[in-house]
Computed example of a mutant assay.
Amino acid sequence: MRLQKFMAKSGVASRRKSEKIILEGKVEVNGKIIKELGYKINVNKDIIKVNGKKIEMEKEKKYIIINKPVGYVTTVSDQFNRKTVMDLIPNINLRLYPVGRLDYDTSGLLLLTNDGDLAYKLTHPSHEINKTYIAKVKGIPSKDELNKFRNGLNIENYLTSKAEIEILNKNNNSSILKIVIHEGKNRQVRKMCDKINHPIIKLKRICIGDIKLGDLKEGEYRDLNSKEINYFKKYSKD
């Protein structure tokens, strides 16, 4: 088995993140530091350590969604000692990690799992899973601005894919928008709203594909049911 795949199945991180950890020289196989991506190991014989700690494959697969509040980072740990989403699941002893991310200032639906293969494939660019947000923005977008948003915007040397946007509510100085994208670039929704001159005041993700946040309260989490797990797994088939 390839080293990064073993790490993902052990709940260390997603396969892509595991590759980064390998390149950083933090992984040992039988006492030897390995920096080679694709290095093959014997699952039954080799001893693998990450940052000096032995790892083993997780036998129990866990899938949860959490309603992330504002003020939490979407990482397992944080160098600045900020609160992370892991602080919200202290009673789970398995090594879970987030699939994708939500910004520090964004709340809403986040998937966590120890299924590295699923995490890798769900975040791969080839899988276009819709992500739905509710955004409060400054001002009220015009028809022209809405159409520009829908057709793709030039942001930092890339053109965003076509997106959905509709106005749900209007106030004097702000409006509530429903936004659907299927990309996952850093702070993309915020940058897109900035581009049409309607900066975000508040942003919340309410759906990933068909999986809905529903009435889950901020800071709380729940296990995915079998139907929801199978929904995500259909994306992970090769």
Rank of each mutant, 00 (worst) to 15 (best):
G139V: 07
I140L: 11
Y158V: 01
L122W: 09
K131N: 06
A135R: 08
N114M: 11
S107M: 02
L122C: 10
G139S: 09
N157D: 15
G108P: 06
E164A: 01
N173G: 00
L110K: 00
T160F: 04
L159N: 11
K136G: 00
N147T: 10
S142C: 09
L146E: 14
N154Y: 08
I155Q: 07
I140A: 04
G139P: 08
L168P: 06
H124C: 09
H127T: 14
L111H: 03
D144V: 14
E128N: 14
I140Y: 12
D144M: 03
D144T: 13
E145D: 14
T123H: 00
D117G: 15
K170F: 06
G152W: 05
L146G: 06
I140K: 14
E164H: 13
E145T: 01
N154F: 11
S175K: 05
L153F: 03
Y120I: 05
N147G: 01
I134L: 15
L159F: 05
N151M: 09
F149Q: 06
V137N: 07
I167H: 11
I155P: 06
F149G: 04
L168M: 14
E128Q: 15
N157Y: 12
K138G: 00
I165D: 08
E128H: 15
S142F: 11
L111Q: 01
N172E: 14
I129T: 12
L109K: 01
K121Q: 15
P125I: 09
N157P: 04
D115P: 11
S175M: 04
L153G: 04
R150F: 02
R150C: 03
E156D: 15
G139W: 05
I176N: 03
H127S: 12
L110E: 00
S142H: 08
N147D: 15
N154H: 06
N130H: 13
S142N: 10
N173M: 00
T113V: 12
S107Q: 07
S107Y: 02
K143Y: 11
H127A: 10
F149N: 04
L159K: 14
